[in-house]
């Protein structure tokens, strides 16, 4: 982790986030901006970021746009949404846009640092409400083993594997990832890998969906 982009409108919180980043990744170069358009402009710059901490509620728009711009211009960047909203109505669109995890602002600094480290190492968090949304998004919110019927909107190839489905269903029931690892007799690493894949598929399928929608509207041929 060499470069981090912090997009947050409140100066105090911005500094705090920059501080946390430096603590977690010593020697990291922080670029901090306060507006969505600035964030998008940064995303379009040549020098790539490794990490981005993006607030959702920005004065000139949503952080989701910044996440999207980052995914478009810098696919190797790891966008993380930092928000005060913890409900899936706010989080799920961000995850669909390509965010690879989320942090809730009010948590104690140590917790935040630990979570950020976990996300960076490829273990994004997954709350039951988000899991439910993901399940219904993939249209596979059915009894296991689900007959994997492709949903109408998503690309047929973007599908959850049976294992991923099981993980999601257990998360949706309120089991924690370590518990699931234990239940399935898998390593925490494997479970984290599944979760990462789920995030990725969410991003890919939503982009495929966007492409489809664009084609439908005649924007792309």
């Amino acid at each position: 982790m060499n470069k981090v982009l912090v997009v947050e409108d409140l100066a105090e919180v911005r500094d705090w986030l920059a501080d946390i980043s430096r603590t977690v990744f010593p020697g990291i170069e922080v670029t901090a901006v306060g507006r969505a358009d600035e964030g998008q402009a940064c995303a379009a710059t040549v020098r790539p970021f490794d990490l981005a901490l993006v607030d959702l509620g920005l004065p000139d728009g949503s952080g989701i746009e910044v996440v999207r711009a980052l995914r478009r211009h810098q696919p190797q960047c790891l966008p993380v949404v930092v928000t005060i909203y913890d409900d899936d109505e706010h989080l799920f669109p961000a995850l669909q846009a390509g965010a690879f995890g989320y942090l809730l602002k009010e948590q104690p600094r140590e917790v935040l640092e630990a979570q950020l480290l976990r996300i960076a190492s490829g273990e994004p968090p997954l709350a039951p409400s988000i899991a439910r949304r993901v399940l219904s998004f993939f249209g596979q919110n059915r009894a296991v083993p689900a007959p994997l019927v492709p949903p109408a909107d998503a690309e047929p190839e973007v599908r959850l594997t049976a294992q991923e489905l099981v993980v999601l269903q257990r998360v949706a029931k309120g089991f924690t990832l370590p518990e699931i690892a234990q239940q399935l007799g898998l390593s925490r690493h494997t479970i984290a890998e599944h979760v990462k894949n789920i995030y990725r598929k969410l991003d890919v399928s939503s982009r495929a969906e966007a492409t489809l929608e664009a084609a439908r509207r005649g924007l792309v041929r």
Partner: peptide
């Protein structure tokens, strides 16, 4: 946050509430 969640006024299935509670508590 809880007040706000109540404010959005949408009801929750007991099953989902249990899942949320479990994840958080555990």
């Amino acid at each position: 946050r809880l007040s706000v969640r109540g404010m959005t006024g949408h009801v929750t299935a007991a099953e989902e509430a249990l899942a949320d509670w479990r994840a958080e508590t555990v």
